[in-house]
Design a protein around this nucleic acid. Structure first.
Lengths: 182, 182
DNA sequence: TTTTAATATATAAAACCTATATATAAAAAG
DNA sequence: CTTTTTATATATAGGTTTTATATATTAAAA
């Protein structure tokens, strides 16, 4: 459902082939959405069957590498997209994190191991923030809305990193207390 | 995969039946995870088949209402759980939001409609924050780790709400500029 | 010339989400 | 007292998303 519309949305920018759709989305919206090839290609086919997009060409299109299928949005596709864009979201935000799922149960495991996993997360998010800030200029070019969401992504990253560090300190402090007591 | 371990984690607290597992999770970890009955019951069966949990009793268990299947974690279940708890997360955080997916494409639609959808979101999150703060005391009782994650959930809500308001103001301001120019 | 890497398309299986249904007991309504 | 509604509890099925895997073409490196 949502995948179809994100493809339509991207094709508003310009005609693209499947691989480029994923690339574009990862680069520009990767902080809040991603699509996998496993969804892109079946959905491109469905969108074609439904007349929402059209395959314009199958060639290199003036670029290096193998031939690519260039897709373009149709007028019908634009109409359907607009309908979706105006509708209320069909469900609430979902957040999934195997790390956080472990975190709530860290009380049942080994504290040093918990601290190690937290350190690994801190490392991951620090690197991610640097990467995302490097992309800042590109997002400005895509317009106000994209920029605002990008800002949200970075702010959330920073919040999460801050929380990780605070949590780490808190856990270490509790450990210290316990060792002192015994 | 993750569902199995969250059930095992919950059964560390005490023996529970399926419905209570969902209830417990919604109430205490609902800000970062949810399981649906569609997953709970098949997984309870699998966990039993694998010997990770055991069904202890099928009765009312001293409470009102229909009979319930009370599950208990086995020693094998504890070992498997500990293994999972110690392992690095199998994937990164995923955040999905049908509203945000629309948001990045609001530039292709009607601005007033965008503002209306944003207002609806602000309303939803304001109510959610109140609800979650009401649950604060319960989270304290479940231990430090649960409390830390609950804090993260609330902080993220507040961040998101703040962002929504800022985004709204920015969009309205752009609208004002455009109308002034024409 | 051959091998490796990058780009591009694609399918299948597993995991998760949504929808729907049924059963039992208790409370409310008639 | 009987029937209907509500709350609690278990369960299955279908749809969507994620992960795993594969193949093909072109270009660059060995």
């Amino acid at each position: 459902m949502a995948i179809k519309y994100s493809i339509l949305g991207l094709l508003h920018y310009k005609d693209m082939h499947g691989y480029r759709i994923k690339e574009h989305l990862e680069r520009n919206f990767g902080h809040m959405w991603s699509i996998n090839y496993g969804q892109i290609y079946p959905n491109l086919k469905i969108l074609c069957d439904d007349g929402w997009i059209r395959m314009m060409d199958f060639s290199q299109n003036g670029e290096k590498g193998p031939p690519r299928k260039l897709y373009s949005i149709t007028e019908k596709g634009r109409e359907e997209f607009l309908r979706w864009l105006s509708a209320s979201p069909e469900r609430a935000m979902i957040l999934r994190d195997p790390f956080l799922m472990r975190f709530v149960f860290f009380g049942f495991g080994d504290r040093d191991n918990a601290l190690a996993l937290i350190d690994a997360q801190i490392d991951i998010y620090e690197k991610q923030i640097v990467r995302r800030k490097d992309n800042q200029r590109r997002w400005d070019e895509l317009g106000m809305y994209v920029q605002l969401v990008a800002d949200l992504g970075i702010t959330f990253n920073e919040l999460f990193l801050d929380w990780l560090k605070k949590a780490r300190a808190r856990i270490a402090e509790e450990t210290h207390k316990k060792r002192k007591a015994s």
